[in-house]
Nucleic acid binder design. Structure first.
Lengths: 211, 211, 211, 211
DNA sequence: TATGAATGAGTATTCATTCAT
DNA sequence: AATGAATGAATACTCATTCAT
């Protein structure tokens, strides 16, 4: 029992598999991939292990994704899409005057809650940012766009100082990304202990923008 | 000791030359590695390719580095050491009142001039930060320490507002790291076009600290 | 179940054939391995060479065996299983009074006919002896047990002197193993020229036991 | 300190080395080799490790031995020579009538006390047995010859039954080798618990010969 | 006498991918 | 829709050995 060829393992897994609900296989793959990715990291991420995890043969994955790259990209993109949604939601649900603050909050929260995707898109494979969305995803939300829009509108409303909205948005971005990415790589900063810093940072930004 | 036969002199010289040669190859390896690293990225970085790049057999690398890990670490660490030196230099050469600004400047400059090492130490292998320096490097400078010290001293001198120096330093860090790392991953931001943003950011920080 | 469409029959046959093919290749590998093992010896035995011998890529072997260790173990174990069968057969087919003699005969014959496996299990990797059988082999026969049983029964029947059966069996073992292993390593002793010695030895043992 | 190239390790070792007495280097090598061999086994025995153990560079070993094979052979041969000496000593020091028994005793004792060499010469590299002694060793004692001589003389003296001395010697050999090699590979038999068996075996042989 | 530098061959193993079924 | 068989390429690493010094 201990010694098993991969093929043998597959056979066993294959039996138990179908039961876990009829979640579409593509979704199953993506989830297994994300999980594997977050445990093994970028380097040791392999299609074979994804296949093993869901109890399908490696070949099967090629029915749903062109190749490893595509799987990675879609995975990252899904995360990124969620990111856009989160920012948009912050935009929508906050009173106009507090939008920027809420967006900052949402930004950092998302990054800390979805470290895998955040790292992949913003720290490891930034080329993904420049790539067009996969065809199937038509509902893409440009997350930086959300921030820029919130900034521009606040300027129009006279709430914050008139400047190049893009530049202002970038300053915001620099801060939230700086904080989030430091937490993701530096063990001294944790989601818990950065709260005071987060607040101070956001207040500083608001003061700065309003001046 | 001053009296030496020619043979003795020769021997020493020969030894020195060889040692020199050894160092040079080590350096060559490190440079090739850095180059490869910056083109191929962390994940596709392989010793064989490094060897190929310098025209030596893969085996040779093992004469200079225990294994892949060590090569990577030394590469990162060398960068990091330069980083400490750069910050320290900024600290030393600036008038006290301008230290923080100069350190910020040096930070970003270094990151943009040494992207490979910066990525490795601050974005990809943050575990290196916690690792003790290789024996040969005794002159290690704790870069975050430099920032903190500059901050603490400025507080003492009454130039900036009294707060937890560590927290203040972290806010600085968040900003410079945020900016630097965005430039490193986002093709829209380049070393050239971030200058205005950099200045604005630093001014904001100074205003914030002085309040 | 008896009623089958042609398609179904075909499918089953196809599956069977494939399974057959799979088994055949596994066997091929094992045979090539044994051959290589006997020519190159334990130390220079490599998977690559096995692969080359059967005209497959090295990778293929991993489809049939988890790793080198498993291949070696299965190879040894297969031999060992045959060994148990041979001893058991000797036990079964000989008249009780002659069992011990026949078992000795079978022992030596087997070792000389299967030198590779014999060496592996009894001379090189004795740790295999202690390892549980691979799952697929449920019909394992404890060969030493066969000898011990034959001895104990002969004692009960009063044919041989009453002693610790295990000790008596070990004395037998020492002799047959001594002879077999000497033949396997010493070029002066060959399967042919040891016959007189074998007979003398067995007679000695029988005399000794009967006293 | 933890991370060291082999070359660096060597340098350090090189300093401390010469002190351990002026044992000839060749001897040092052989001893280190035997030690390494007994801990690492045949497969993982490497010249580099031998060199490392004595604090010399691998190249140095080639000044004393043509290649790895020769080192191994000499090592084995030294053991074998000691073996001859031990048997000869047993022959010399025992009263004629007890010679055979003492030789058997010495045989088993030697094998258990020098498992490394015994395995190498009698179980792993039996080809060494057929190879002529290295030139430097002119005092070679043919161990099997000692046994045969003792047997032949005992026959002459009428102490044991007249037979082909070589055949009789071989029967002895089969028994002592069988016992020794089983102990070396089978964890159930240990130097301690085989004593009764050893005595029984030797008595059996003596009875057999005297008949 | 001893060594540093260098290498070519070899090892086990893992992976992405293809193709026929 | 899914898979089994197979492979070529790659990887880190170790080793015996040579050569110039």
């Amino acid at each position: 029992m201990q010694v098993q060829t991969r093929a043998e393992k597959l056979k066993l897994a294959s039996a138990a598999r179908r039961e876990q609900g009829k979640l579409e296989l593509k979704r199953q793959i993506l989830e297994a991939a994300a999980h594997l990715f977050s445990t093994n990291g970028y380097e040791d991420f392999s299609l074979r292990q994804v296949a093993e995890a869901i109890g399908y043969s490696p070949t099967t994955i090629y029915l749903y994704f062109k190749d490893k790259e595509e799987l990675l990209f879609v995975m990252a993109f899904e995360g990124f899409r969620g990111f856009g949604v989160a920012l948009q939601h912050a935009y929508d649900s906050a009173p106009p005057a507090e939008r920027i603050w809420h967006i900052g909050r949402a930004y950092v929260d998302f990054a800390l809650a979805n470290p895998v995707q955040y790292r992949l898109m913003f720290m490891q494979r930034s080329d993904y940012l420049a790539r067009p969305a996969p065809e199937c995803y038509t509902d893409f939300i440009d997350s930086f766009g959300v921030v820029t829009k919130a900034v521009a509108e606040a300027m129009k409303r006279g709430e914050i100082k008139l400047r190049d909205p893009q530049e202002t948005a970038t300053l915001l971005w620099v801060n939230v990304h700086g904080l989030a990415s430091l937490v993701l790589t530096n063990s001294h900063l944790t989601p818990e202990n950065i709260e005071p810093l987060f607040h101070w940072m956001m207040q500083m930004l608001q003061r700065e923008m309003s001046v």
